[in-house]
Amino acid sequence: MRDIWIIAENLPWAGTLAAGAASIGKGAKIVAFVNGDEAEAKAVIAQGAAEAFYLPLPAAAPWEGYAPALAEKAKADKPALILLSTSRRCRDVAAQLAAVLDAPCFSEGKNIVLTESGASVETMLYGGLAVKSSSVSAETVLVTVGAKDFEPLPADASRSGPVGTLPLAAGPVAVVGRKPRAAQTVDLAAAVKVVGVGRGVAEEGDLAIVRDLAEALGAEVGCSRPIAEFFKWMPEECYIGISGQQIKPQLYVAVGISGQAQHYFGIRDAKTIVSINKDKESLMNQNADYFIAADWKAVVPELIKAVRGA
């Protein structure tokens, strides 16, 4: 059996990918490439990799600059499967590797199964509206995998294996600055409760009512794409959806959200979803645990009162 590679954005994600590779490959040798230093490489070995390469973030070049070296090695080693993080850098690397290897690459793959001649994978269409199940015959198949898709195996410090790094050739892209993400006013990804605002909330002034609800619930406030990108009523970091924040709160309350697949993608991991949308048939209502099909302006003040009284 040929090797399975994992290429990870960070150590926790490497743990996820290693667990994925172990469950998919059933005994295949796992070769890991992880953003970080020697310590990270060793830690990945403890989590299941047989061999690990650390790829430190270069100061003056993008991390994606490792792509040519990874491609050279992949051409020589011919892994059956390469699992990568769905992070932005790793997606870029995945696509470049796929092009050089002339290989299929599945983005956000699920239910990955190695077959005799390649793999079968499920991917999402239309932001989660449908699931596409595909099979492919190829020497190497690439799949990007979410950070929580597999439960990492417990670290076993007794495991050992070779640790190395890859060369970083001088590339055409120079990094002239890095600015860490500004301390966020809200951390939706970590929030236990989130109230989401959609276009059903027709006026910016009415956001105050929604914020009152959030305060009563002890929730953060997020929004659908048009509210942040089109109306600009809220900062971009508040936008929940396929190209925005993906959240996993205990409770999500959607206020005036139509529930387009793009938005639902961002909240699908919420434990309990409540929708307030006067269109009973709206996707949001139909994909909620509980919904109230009435004007949000009538519902939310009542709900605030009731929550405060509860």
């Binding site: 993008p62 992070s87 932005r88 990094v175 002239v176 600055g177 890095r178 600015k179 860490p180 993400r181």
Partner: peptide, 8 residues
């Protein structure tokens, strides 16, 4: 990027 902005 997830970590912040990279200017190139």
């Amino acid at each position: 990027l997830e970590q912040g902005t990279e200017t190139v």
